[in-house]
Design a protein around this nucleic acid. Structure first.
Lengths: 190, 190
DNA sequence: GTCTATAATTTGATAGAC
DNA sequence: GTCTATCAAATTATAGAC
């Protein structure tokens, strides 16, 4: 079901994703994208007729990338659950440390009510899938805990830590969240 | 040091704040604001010549509102620390439940690198002041804990919970964060 | 796939009358 | 303080040639 894109379309998606992560949906313009990838804006419209199409494509591709790098969620022990949760943390860590930006759906999630409906739907889908992955990881290796609540809280904390880190140009907020969550998880899982 | 605004200027600030909370800085336009408050766009420019002026004013006023409603931070016991932290939680709760939107600096914080520099500075100031208030609340009533880390983590979690709640139209993410944080705080303060 | 050309709209912003 | 009038620039988007 994964759509494939030509190299140029991928360049466009890369640029669009960067801009959306910096300033939100309105921060991407067809002309700017075109200039950045070395074509004219009409060519960008050829690949993605409407801006909502572009938004959907960016979010879908992003969701696939993330789920792929998360890998299989199933765990067979509490030790493995912790390993899976470390992967989740790593996703956010990579986003923040790699680009000094908030992650895509952290940005677009805040703007949900402002987005074209199909884009908002993709953003919702991202959150459902990431939370689903996390729940599966927890409940498969630690069946007696409230996997849904733990997943929700971890995603909340990691996302907010990224936002605070970007807002203040101080990544220690993320370090604190990571440390605190790991300790909290090991006290919570049993 | 608090600037005062005419009733019309306040209406403009109210409308601008709403739009910024929905879709970020770019989601407010002078014409839309003007229509909403019943004047022409030139009149909005009279009150706030540049868009950055408007942004600064919105964030400054917001910061003052929040700090005023937080009240005095000093606590004389762990019980009082918990009361102060409940007020902090209440700020975010009110923002989410009152308007179904993320709080202002949650939105603008993510966009920090995209904002006009003076606006970004005001957003940074918001975070410093709210974190400072929280640190004072904790350290005054519970001197032996790491107030800075607790403050950072609470703000991260509350903000991320709001984002997740807005992105998924599901406020239970906030309820979970609130519950979890309260339990975590009572285990952490001693 | 990419281009030129262009349309229709919106944007931030200013000058000057009332 | 608000208005009319206007501007230059930027925006999304389309038609049609190559």
């Amino acid at each position: 079901m994964t759509k494939t894109y030509s190299p140029k379309a991928q360049e466009i998606l890369d640029a669009a994703e960067r801009h959306m992560r910096s300033g939100g949906f309105d921060a991407v313009s067809f002309r700017d994208l075109a200039t950045e990838v070395g074509v004219k804006s009409a060519s960008v419209h050829y690949h993605f007729p409407q801006k909502a199409d572009l938004g959907e494509a960016v979010v879908s591709r992003y969701t696939e990338k993330i789920l792929e790098s998360l890998g299989e969620p199933e765990a067979t022990s509490i030790y493995e659950v912790r390993q899976r949760l470390d992967r989740l943390i790593g996703i956010y860590r990579t986003a923040l440390y790699g680009d000094d930006k908030v992650c895509l759906c952290c940005m677009l999630g805040s703007e949900a009510s402002y987005l074209p409906e199909p884009v908002a739907a993709k953003v919702l889908s991202f959150f459902m899938q990431v939370k689903g992955w996390t729940e599966t990881a927890i409940s498969s290796g630690a069946p007696s805990v409230d996997a849904s609540a733990i997943a929700s809280f971890m995603i909340s904390s990691l996302q907010g830590a990224m936002t605070q880190a970007v807002a203040t140009s101080d990544k220690s907020h993320f370090e604190i969240a990571e440390q605190t969550l790991k300790l909290w998880v090991s006290n919570t899982l049993k």
